[in-house]
Simulated scan of single mutants.
Amino acid sequence: MSYEVYGPYIPVIMLITFLALFVWVLNPKNKDKYDDAANMPLNEPDETDEMKPDDTEASDGRIEK
């Protein structure tokens, strides 16, 4: 089989794939999941200690002797 046989069907397959993804994204069941993902960058970390630098290491990441 070659492109001449399957070639005309490629745009139809791409259109069906696009429409299926479009319906999947707009499905109301997925709204909560997408809202949580959209707000993820705005959420603050729970512990602020993770962001403080450790005093035991030098500023360049090497351990001082």
Rank of each mutant, 00 (worst) to 15 (best):
L26F: 12
L26I: 04
K31W: 00
M40A: 15
D32N: 01
M1P: 03
D60I: 12
K33Y: 14
P8N: 04
T56Q: 13
E4K: 10
S2A: 15
K33C: 07
F22V: 04
P28M: 06
A58H: 07
A38G: 06
A58W: 08
N39V: 03
T56H: 13
W24K: 06
M1S: 14
D54S: 14
N30R: 05
P45D: 05
L21G: 11
N30S: 02
Y9W: 06
V25M: 00
L42R: 12
V25R: 03
E47G: 01
F22S: 08
Y3P: 02
S2L: 10
E64K: 10
M51K: 04
W24P: 01
K29H: 01
P28L: 06
D49Y: 10
P45I: 05
N39T: 08
G7C: 10
I13G: 09
E57G: 01
Y3E: 03
P8R: 03
M51Y: 04
V23C: 04
D36F: 06
T17C: 11
L15P: 00
L21Q: 05
V12P: 00
A38K: 13
K65T: 05
Y34C: 04
D36M: 09
L21T: 02
L15S: 12
A37E: 08
D55M: 01
V23K: 04
N43L: 14
Y3F: 11
P45T: 05
D46K: 15
P45E: 05
I63Q: 13
N43W: 05
L42I: 05
L42E: 11
A20Y: 11
P41W: 00
D55W: 07
I63N: 11
T17P: 03
A37Q: 09
L26S: 01
V12M: 09
D36T: 05
K29T: 01
D54R: 08
Y3T: 01
D32G: 02
K33N: 08
E47C: 09
K31S: 03
D54M: 07
I10L: 11
D49M: 08
P11R: 02
A20K: 10
L26Y: 06
N27A: 06
V25F: 11
G61N: 13
P41F: 01
N30Y: 02
T48Q: 12
F18G: 12
M51I: 08
K31I: 03
K33E: 14
P28Y: 07
V25S: 00
E44K: 14
E50G: 15
E4L: 09
N27H: 13
A20L: 14
D35E: 12
D35Y: 03
I10V: 15
I16R: 09
T48L: 15
A58V: 03
M1Y: 13
V25A: 05
E4M: 05
A58F: 04
I63K: 15
N27I: 03
